[in-house]
């Protein structure tokens, strides 16, 4: 898909063509859903977030500035919504995470799980913002520049945060026993 394709779809949606929005969903719902999973850590909340994101996209499509790439704008809304959802859940989540931190080490808390579960668990030890950066870089394979726009931070800050987050993740994964699988 190209930038032009997205813009054509958007023009159709703005002119009242709902089927164009269905096409937009086909293109991007999986991306948004997976970004949300990466940030909030579970599929149920990710489903709610995805729905909210696309409703907001629809309602605010007229404010979209075509000078930006559509998917960057979409990612930005998705990340904001995911981080906000995470903050709303924070009290509960922090209690859970605190329990993990105080009752056991990451190594001890890691159950027998596959790599995906391991990385999912390890991600939860990062701050939501750093988790979002890691998700955008490694799940979505976005460039530092794109992540900087989405997160509204400089590329330098993105790089510093990503480096720090990756090292922390690496230490947790190795404690979880990933070394044997390398």
């Amino acid at each position: 898909m190209t930038l032009t394709d997205d813009h054509i779809l958007i023009e159709r949606i703005l002119s009242g063509d709902r089927s164009a929005f269905a096409e937009l969903l086909d293109r991007y719902q999986k991306v948004v859903y997976n970004v949300a999973i990466g940030v909030v850590g579970n599929q149920l909340d990710a489903e709610d977030i995805t729905q909210t994101v696309f409703l907001k996209v629809y309602e605010n499509l007229a404010t979209y500035n075509p000078r930006y790439r559509f998917f960057s704008w979409l990612y930005r809304i998705a990340i904001n919504e995911s981080l906000n959802a995470k903050k709303r859940m924070r009290q509960t989540v922090e209690l859970d995470e605190e329990a993990i931190r105080t009752d056991s080490t990451p190594e001890e808390s890691a159950v027998e799980s596959d790599l995906e579960n391991q990385i999912g668990e390890a991600l939860m030890f990062l701050s939501p913002e750093n988790r979002a950066i890691v998700v955008l870089r490694h799940y979505q394979e976005l460039s530092y520049r794109e992540i900087a726009y989405i997160m509204d931070l400089s590329e330098t800050k993105i790089k510093a945060r990503l480096y720090s987050a990756r090292q922390m993740l690496g230490r947790i994964l190795i404690k979880q026993g990933l070394r044997a699988e390398l």
Binding site: E116, I119, Q167
Partner: peptide
């Protein structure tokens, strides 16, 4: 090794 763990995961 830590970063490779991340890469593998």
């Amino acid at each position: 090794d830590e970063l490779q763990a991340v890469k593998v995961a």
